[in-house]
Design a protein around this nucleic acid. Structure first.
Length: 558
RNA sequence: GCACCCAUAGCUCAACUGGAUAGAGCAUUUGACUACGAAUCAAAAGGCUAGGAGUUCGAAUCUCUUUGGGUGCACCA
């Protein structure tokens, strides 16, 4: 609809000698009495043109009426302070249904991002343990955003920044070694309590690793030498990596690139970065440490990049990593998915990237708020002390990948997410995932029955259908939604919010259920049945494609 | 103490980045299966968008401020 009107609006503007604004906003009015689309063009231009908005609107409407086919747009009117409202003919929607069958599995895609290489980095959990619930939201958002960008035509690389260097990894090695010792002789080498050493990892998986090392090597690794600790660390890293990828696969997620942090060191990129920062005058030495001069870049305090001990802080490899993505690998756009606890860290990195001559606007940082697990109205606490926490695997085990993924993206990124365990396990109308899937299964069921009656419904059904027969309000509502899918994908691609897709699909499902309730499909006159087959098939296409973007299955039966 | 995020129906959240009468789901109440899946549909009720001031044709949205939550403020990541 919008794409139908835009050219006419541009023509009308130029006929009136008015420069077109960058963006012509066309909106769906909340109130259906205001027509099917509306624009505030006259109001936004009134000031610059020094005209009364309504006067301007009048001129525009006159000009539009002479250009637009009255059989397609049945009414163009002015309302309120100067809104121009458009009313489309009911038959217009049906006539556009062909676009669904022509595109098929690609319906909803656009080519906006053609030729633009984008790197989406998500999950990126340290290989020091199992993925927990928070990582789940990161994973679901990241993967869905990657899908959304793909549907917008971008050339997408899915990347996992594998944080396998640094202090946390050493702590992992130490923890495994202590468990290993405990396994050899618990009396002689008791595992330290939290009070004694709070840097240790305490999950059961550490004990498991210690045990397997003890089985394999006996007492050979007993000495806490660097060599032995390295071996423990390696074993821990491998174990965690295997566990993490397994969880990802289960969630229907496959990264294209696992970028190892330690490669930044081994390939000299960290050293190179610090060198370049110094050349640009934004790094200096003080008190035996190397600092990033953020105060020179309009920020408050300088921060340490290399500690006086010689170890880098997280900041330095992060800068090197982003510089690598932009300068060496030349991505046109870089998307980072970060939890709210990292909100204060990325401006440093962006400032440094800018100092290195790259455009920080190429980096889009998506911050998501935390997840609280709720059960019977009470918060499920996670315990650091015992190392026991609800893992992502637990959720997948209990609810399956569809429900888990959906719950993580059904709220906008920037709102706290309540993951209601009771609701997720409910296989009923309360559970929004089933609502969507049920609509898809219901359509599938009808199409199966058509098949039994010797009618195969497919894309050519739409091409051959008499769509002018689709005039029931429920049919029109469903048609409108189906046709809005491409612009919804485009919008999701602009704001990078998966929730937009989830909410849209809920609307489509609701419109289908209502249509199904109000209008019979089977057993009507052949032409009407066929038209409704076409509509149902189009709805199924939208649901299937949309669910695919969310990484959720579209079942034929439930 | 300083910075960032948030506050919308009883609960969980929307509101197309400034548009017209703020919308959904759940919960509550009440209706609809002798025809395609009732995991569905329909109806009712529910609001001074936390409080206050400002910006303009127009504010839940932008600015300031008060209150009440979250997060971060290391030579941790």
């Amino acid at each position: 609809m919008k794409s139908y009107l835009r050219p006419f609006l541009l023509e009308a503007l130029s006929a009136l000698n008015i420069a077109a604004p960058d963006e012509i906003t066309l909106e769906l009015p909340r109130n259906p009495e205001h027509g099917d689309l509306s624009t505030n063009l006259a109001m936004t231009l009134a000031k610059a043109e020094k005209k009364n908005p309504r006067e301007l609107a009048n001129a525009l409407v006159e000009s539009l009426k002479s250009r637009i086919d009255a059989a397609v747009v049945t009414d163009i009117s002015i309302a309120g302070a100067g809104f121009i409202n458009f009313k489309f003919a009911d038959t217009f929607y049906g006539s556009r249904l062909k676009s669904v069958s022509e595109a098929g599995e690609a319906y909803g895609k656009n080519a906006k991002g053609t030729g633009i290489r984008v790197n989406v980095e998500y999950v990126s959990a340290n290989p020091t343990g199992l993925l927990h619930v928070g990582h789940g939201r990161n994973a679901a958002i990241g993967d869905t955003v990657a899908n959304i960008l793909h549907w917008n035509g971008y050339d997408v690389t899915r990347e996992y920044y594998f944080n396998n260097a640094g202090n946390q990894m050493n702590n992992l090695g130490k923890s495994v070694h202590k468990r290993y010792l405990e396994c050899l002789d618990a009396a002689k080498f008791p595992f330290p309590t939290v009070e004694e050493d709070d840097s240790l990892y305490r999950g059961e998986y550490i004990t498991e690793m210690g045990k397997s090392l003890a089985d394999k090597h006996g007492s050979a690794l007993q000495e806490a030498s660097e060599e032995n600790l390295t071996q423990c660390r390696k074993a821990g890293e491998e174990w965690c990596f295997a566990a993490i990828t397994k969880t990802m696969v289960r969630m229907n997620i496959r990264h294209d690139v696992y970028f190892n942090e330690d490669s930044l060191y081994s390939e000299g990129k960290v050293a190179d970065t610090i060198q370049k920062l110094k050349e640009h005058g934004v790094a200096y030495e003080k008190d035996g440490a190397t600092w990033l001069a953020l105060s020179k870049m309009g920020m408050q305090d300088d921060r340490v990049m290399i500690k006086s001990s010689g170890e880098p802080t997280y900041r330095l490899p992060d800068i090197a990593y982003h510089h690598d993505k932009l300068a060496r690998r030349k991505f046109d756009m870089v998307v980072d998915i970060l939890g709210a606890d990292h909100i204060a860290t990325y401006p440093d990195v962006l400032a440094a990237v800018k100092a290195l001559g790259e455009n920080p606007e190429k980096v889009r940082v998506l911050i998501y708020q935390f997840v609280t697990l709720m059960h019977n109205g009470e918060q499920v606490k996670m315990s650091k002390r015992t190392g026991k926490a609800y893992t992502l695997d637990d959720l997948l085990e209990e609810f399956g990948e569809d429900v888990t993924r959906f719950f993580f993206v059904m709220r906008s990124n920037n709102t706290h997410l309540e993951f209601d365990i009771g609701l997720a396990s409910e296989q009923s109308d309360k559970n929004p995932v089933f609502y969507l899937q049920y609509a898809h299964a219901r359509i599938s069921s009808v199409l199966r029955q058509a098949e039994e009656r010797g009618v195969t419904v497919n894309a050519s059904t739409i091409a051959g259908a008499e769509t002018t027969l689709l005039v029931h309000p429920s049919e029109i509502d469903l048609l409108k939604l189906i046709l809005r899918f491409p612009e919804t994908v485009a919008r999701a691609g602009e704001i990078l919010e998966p929730q937009v897709i989830a909410e849209f699909l809920r609307e489509v499902a609701a419109a289908f259920h209502k249509f199904y309730h109000d209008c019979r499909i089977l057993g009507e006159a052949e032409s009407l049945t066929n038209a409704r087959f076409a509509l149902a098939f189009a709805a199924k296409t939208v649901l299937r494609n949309g669910l695919q973007i969310l990484g959720i299955s579209a079942p034929e039966k439930m």
